[in-house]
Nucleic acid binder design. Structure first.
Lengths: 354, 354
DNA sequence: GCGGTTTCTGTAAGCGGTTACAAGCCCGCG
DNA sequence: CGCGGGCTTGTAACCGCTTACAGAAACCGC
């Protein structure tokens, strides 16, 4: 439109306070085309210094900042990755997010958080299309088939600690091995009757941990009874109470996560049961809190933050690969297994009944 | 383009695996215009049932899901809010995010996380324009002027627990009152020489808490010395060590947050100092961990999750208001103050030196 | 059966950018 | 001085969706 050249005086129309200047405003004020403004801002192509300066001045004057949404639409790249988590309870997710953020911000990516509350939310997954470049999904309680059905087609995806998805990269925790190590350790310390507080039955990690615990117990020839918990402190408390009341015979408790272990630990202490002398306790995850409780909790340690970082790193690489050769479908890389290690602390030290 | 009507047979072009169908594909397959498809999907306007069915069938067949980015561009509404946090360390932010998510997901909003690492990141704030409808900003260590300069103009904003910004809604914690209550409580318990482990000097909350502590100490006529910490456990440990070594005379420690208090507590215990008999300890925030350490930590409790939820709620309302009357600039509502309450636990109980 | 409504539906102009393509400029060289 | 070619720059066509507007169709009573 060279029609309204009435404004040799730029007439800067920075729009009423509140609205933002667009690339067109900048172009008009600088007296150049929008393409040039775009070029200046994307720093590529050959732009003459003089124009560069003019544009930058105009932009500064108008307080122009590119509109991320518009840019992502035309570039087919949002610069954000979606993080899908089952819940936000406890330190585990705090650590996980911290690791993800570390990696993402290093790569200039944003994190769009989506929480799957109690089954709700799966259907919002598909709606992420066009809002993120990729997805890190952690949904240990979701049926893999249901999950697959709801995944948006476009974005790349990495699955974290849940039932493996075909054709995608899965980052798994060696739950079986970790749990087995913990139970073997308890048995070596003299435990004869171990109670395992498992996670919810529909939780993938919980299933694997339980299986690992059972395998190790039978290998060591010790008794193992399982009580299903929900990963929250309260279910640990309940078991601790029962053990203290002798309603449940046990000289060791292995919980499928730390919060339940801590619940049990606190309950035992409240009832005057000596830990680890009378009952040993071990957990899983090694959240920062584990070493702060008293006595400090033995736990199967996974570097949660590192795991989050890896997931993001893998995803970022997958996104980049896809960008280079968009033809091929999802890049199927070998799954990666995170190997935990047993962190022995006071709740299992010197059980002294061997 | 009615040029390529070669396809009376729909010829469905769902695009190669990986790419997503667009609204045009659906329109073509259903034999209607894109406007109609859009109407069907947005459920408004008058659409005849027959067409509705045709469109839905076509969409299902193609696995069509609207492109969130494109939609947000044309509607000038992203459905996401940006959450700007100083760091992701510890349980505080985990709780905060949990509360924010609760409120946001209830309102159908996504959370785009942005962390301001060590000063870096402020400049990315403006880039959020067009990616979010509003911002919840928590930046207690940032100069308010710097912050104001970097805020994107478009989105609404709520400031959380940081130096108040003019013309925006600020959600503040009564740091002064909370700290004063803690110190008064320590004094009432018999403390004569209190050490306050403050937060970083450039942190707004830290400054207020320190001032509150000092005011209460002088009101109660007890000595208060301040040692600057960094909100991490280690700075508490250091102070605990010094107190235990009598390098620092104190019969009570008040830390500006719980992690430092816990650090001090652990250090004291390690050195065999009886808490609270020899030295009482109190913290601030009342993170979930506070009641789990041994002895359980007295703390100035703020309902962190609720605070996050309120911030999001306020922001959502502001966004809605803005949408109704876009003319007026930022809606300036009265600031809201969150009043903490003292949660007395074992680390200050029965000091017995009154 | 017809004008006047009312109810659908399609066309096309955005939203705010990017970018292929072509036109314009400037330069040196023959 | 004219011309070819390399830099710059502008034009306009997208990206995928919404929506104002106008045209088409259906419905009404007479």
């Amino acid at each position: 439109m060279s029609s309204d050249r009435t404004d040799l005086v730029p007439a800067a129309v920075p729009a009423a306070r509140g609205a933002h200047a667009t690339i067109h405003d900048v172009a008009r004020v600088a007296g150049v085309s929008v393409a040039s403004v775009s070029r200046v801002f994307n720093g590529r192509d050959h732009v003459r210094a003089a124009m560069c300066a003019r544009v930058e001045e105009a932009a500064a004057q108008l307080g122009y900042v590119p509109h991320a949404g518009a840019r992502s639409l035309s570039m087919a790249r949002t610069g954000a990755i979606g993080v899908v988590l089952p819940d936000l309870h406890g330190e585990f997710y705090s650590e996980l997010l911290r690791g993800m953020d570390r990696e993402a911000s290093m790569r200039g990516l944003g994190l769009l958080l989506t929480v799957l509350h109690e089954g709700r939310g799966v259907d919002t997954l598909a709606g992420l299309r066009g809002q993120v470049d990729g997805l890190v999904v952690m949904a240990p309680e979701l049926d893999p088939a249901v999950l697959a059905r709801h995944m948006p087609r476009g974005p790349a995806a990495v699955f974290l600690a849940c039932a493996p998805q075909d054709g995608s990269l899965n980052l798994r925790i060696d739950n079986h091995g970790g749990a087995a190590a913990a139970v073997a350790h308890l048995a070596a310390g003299g435990a004869k009757r171990i109670v395992h507080i498992s996670g919810p039955g529909n939780n993938f990690d919980a299933q694997e941990r339980r299986a690992g615990a059972e395998a190790a117990a039978s290998a060591a020839g010790v008794a193992l009874s399982v009580i299903e918990g929900d990963f929250h402190e309260a279910s640990g408390t309940k078991v601790g109470d029962r053990v203290a009341a002798r309603t449940l015979q046990a000289d060791a408790i292995f919980a499928a996560n730390d919060m339940m272990a801590i619940g049990a630990l606190m309950a035992l202490k409240r009832h005057g049961i000596a830990v680890p002398e009378q009952v040993a306790v071990a957990g899983f995850d090694d959240i920062p809190l584990a070493r702060l409780v008293n006595p400090a909790l033995t736990s199967v340690a996974i570097d949660i933050a590192a795991m989050g970082a890896r997931a993001v790193a893998h995803l970022a690489e997958q996104i980049a690969a896809k960008r280079e050769r968009p033809l091929e479908g999802r890049v199927t890389t070998a799954d990666e297994v995170i190997v935990p290690h047993l962190m022995v602390r006071e709740t299992t030290r010197e059980t002294g009944r061997g």
